[in-house]
């Protein structure tokens, strides 16, 4: 598939728009359907498309397997860490009200932070699973 000019150019054009759409789904999740989980999956879809057209090795140079594995853990830590920060600020675990000067803004920041944690974890996990499935056959 690597010789197909239309596919190569098409994938290259589409990928940044898919990434932008993922970010839109994430940051607009407060107002419209979507959120961290869906955004993470859409973000992975951009890289899956690139793997299908350009091959696993080329994409892994941009997005190394160790990086996506770290992402899977960092997202969970970001989520749990948000809870610890709110505890240190004197509220309950994951009680976002204290994150800003007034509770409503605090809730906004808190939701954005934990959704970012979900996004990073889902992105890292899906990419890790995909790398393992796609890379296993060719090493033998």
């Amino acid at each position: 598939m690597r010789e197909e000019l239309v596919l190569r150019v098409g994938a290259k054009v589409l990928a940044p728009f898919i990434v932008a759409f993922a970010l839109y789904v994430h940051f607009h999740g407060d107002y419209s359907p979507g959120g961290g989980f869906q955004a993470g999956v859409i973000l992975v879809a951009a890289f899956v498309l690139l793997v299908l057209v350009y091959g696993l090795e080329a994409v892994q140079q941009v997005l190394p397997p160790r990086f996506v594995q770290a992402c899977a853990a960092v997202g969970v830590l970001l989520y749990a860490g948000t809870g610890i920060v709110t505890m240190l600020l004197g509220a309950n675990y994951l009680g976002y009200n204290v994150l800003a000067h007034d509770p409503e803004h605090g809730q906004h920041y808190g939701i954005l932070l934990v959704e970012a944690g979900v996004l990073i974890t889902v992105f890292g996990v899906m990419a890790t699973i995909f790398y393992h499935l796609a890379g296993r056959g060719r090493s033998e």
């Binding site: 407060d30 107002y31 959120g35 409503e104 809730q107 906004h108 939701i111 934990v114 959704e115």
Partner: peptide, 13 residues
């Protein structure tokens, strides 16, 4: 919460 999407508010908060 101050968020129009109730699903997001329930899910994350």
């Amino acid at each position: 919460i101050g968020v129009p999407n109730v699903v997001t508010a329930v899910l994350a908060s």
